[in-house]
Design a protein around this nucleic acid. Structure first.
Length: 487
RNA sequence: GGUCGGGUGGCCGAGUGGUUAGGCAGAGCUCUGCAAAAGCUCGUACAGCGGUUCAAAUCCGCUCCCGACCUCCA
């Protein structure tokens, strides 16, 4: 079987995955800032890493997956001028900051649960690690790479860049960043270099969230939390650090700088970045106002949607694109995925009842190899799914007695589909949740319909079928009897 | 403006120097009382223009178009 290879943003190529301390794997993913509801684009990133988490576990690794919660320190604008996002929200809604965080945390977890994401091993919050962030900041000052001005501590990027390739992750040129004209230092705060960012911010009198520190009352900067928490739970060096692509140039670049400045070590071996979800070719984002809330999608409450789509259909839709490609969101694409998802799941259901033969008329190993080769190739879920569909065709064909399968192969197929579809891709059969009453009614109706069909009263029979279809119940007359599905 | 990424059949979306992506939609056939489901067959796509090569959609150059980042953003 092929080796797992992962695309590393640092090297810009796929590298064979070799954990620092096999079988243990440490993975850190930048989580949400809880100042609003998570939209679908946010969900895509966490879903991508959910598959990474699941696949690594499937391969037998003992994964510690840390995904943080940002509940303090994330500013509206750049490190100088903005207001803390959560503090602002709290002020506007007249809530305690922790109330704001709680509201969106509950929603966030519910949504990810709807999408069948596994919870991370540890979900640390920034506000719960202020001490660690202060300690790290102190160390960076000791190492001469940060300075305090009037209660605020700044990271000295230009000094750091003399001994370390500050822009290694983004591939930008430092000179060009320094030359940038979009803002200048005039009229701005006390920081020395235009790229310098805050490790600790002095709290203004009206600021609600504040902690004591060696530099007076204040709160931690946005980037330092991830450096502090990743090193606390995964060590100074760990295997995988992930997040959305938009975090590369600032957040992740600064994270590396902080960790190196503090511990002299680059924190992660592999940096993984997911691409954006787009709507009509444009990035889905809150500021552009084109974002979808998962709830709106499930219920079809959105101008761009003709109707709702279930969480598993959406999950399947997202897995049909590679995590490093943009994925364009549209009604038609969702519809296509819905059909495909149903086809896949129907086939999975069929496996258990397949009749076995003395020989198999297909090569199971070929499908299995294709699936694993795909997943090993930087978690290529769309190709893995394509290989599974080859299996779907065969399963259906066996069910139609046009192909054959041995008992041993059937067991293998069952195992492969169960492990890949459910455990790795994280899909699940969506229970239609009929009550006993509905089932009883359906049995009665179909029984009556059977009677009229025996009498060749097809008009009556078809009327029953057509009327049921109108309320969303589809009747299928198979060779083995009548089945029905409800949506 | 700078940096980076991309333009694939009706739609979504993989891949890549020579061999099938896959899903959805469409056409035909089989099965069926008819439907549905399922199976089989079919469309022969890679923005444009040059170049390299025995061979390019895949490499190189130019042009056009789109996007991301450079400001908070997964």
């Amino acid at each position: 079987m092929s080796e797992l290879r992962i695309y590393n943003t640092l090297s810009r190529e796929k590298e064979v995955f070799q954990p620092l301390n096999a079988p243990h794997v440490g993975m850190y993913v930048c989580g949400p800032t809880l100042y609003s509801f998570a939209h679908l684009g946010n969900c895509r990133t966490f879903m991508s890493f959910d598959v990474v988490f699941r696949y690594l576990k499937h391969l037998g690794y003992k994964v510690r997956y840390v995904r943080n919660i940002t509940d303090v320190g994330h500013l509206e604008s750049d490190g100088d001028v903005g207001e803390d996002k959560i503090a602002k929200r709290a002020r506007l809604e007249k809530l305690e900051p922790m109330e704001v965080v709680q509201l969106y945390a509950v929603d966030f977890h519910k949504v990810l649960d709807d999408f069948n994401l596994l919870p991370p091993s540890i979900e640390p919050s920034a506000s719960g690690h202020v001490i660690e962030q202060i300690e790290m900041t102190k160390k960076i000052i000791e190492n001469g790479l940060a300075y305090e001005v009037d209660g605020t501590v700044w990271f000295d990027v230009e000094k750091f860049a003399k001994t370390y390739p500050y822009t290694e992750l983004s591939g930008r040129k430092l000179d060009e960043l320094l030359e940038g004209t979009r803002d200048n230092l005039e009229g701005q705060s006390e920081k020395r270099g235009r790229l310098d960012f805050a490790l600790w911010k002095k709290a203004k009198p009206e600021h609600i969230m504040r902690w004591p520190s060696p530099w007076g009352e204040g709160f931690p900067g946005w980037h330092i939390e991830c450096s502090a928490m990743s090193s606390k739970y995964l060590g100074e060096q760990f295997d995988i650090h992930g997040g959305g692509m938009d975090l590369i140039p600032t957040h992740h670049t600064n994270e590396i700088a902080q960790s190196v400045a503090c511990c002299k070590k680059s924190p992660a071996k592999i940096w993984m970045h997911t691409n954006m979800l787009t709507v009509n070719g444009q990035k889905m984002s809150k500021s552009l106002g084109n974002s979808f809330l998962p709830e709106e999608l499930f219920e079809g409450r959105h101008a761009l949607l003709e109707r709702g789509y279930s969480p598993m259909v959406v999950r399947f839709f997202m897995l049909q694109a590679h995590y490093r490609s943009t994925l364009d969101f549209s009604n038609a694409a969702l519809q296509a995925s819905e059909k495909g998802f149903q086809r896949l799941m129907n086939a999975v259901k069929l496996i258990a009842d397949l009749k076995t033969s003395a020989t198999s008329s297909f090569h199971f190993e070929k499908i299995k190899t294709e699936v694993y080769d795909a997943l090993n190739d930087d978690f290529n879920t769309p190709v893995a799914i394509a290989a599974l569909f080859e299996g779907v065709r065969i399963i259906n064909s066996i069910n139609d007695a046009k192909d054959t399968i041995t008992a041993a192969d059937k067991e293998q197929v069952q195992k492969l589909f169960s492990e890949i579809v459910f455990d790795v891709l994280g899909l699940k059969q969506e229970t239609t949740g009929h009550s006993d009453k509905v089932s009883g009614l359906m049995n009665l109706i179909l029984d009556l319909r059977k009677d009229v069909r025996t009498k060749k009263d097809f008009a009556a029979s078809d009327k029953i079928r057509d009327e049921l279809l109108k309320v969303g119940i589809q009747v299928k007359d198979g060779k083995e009897g009548v089945t029905w599905t409800s949506n």
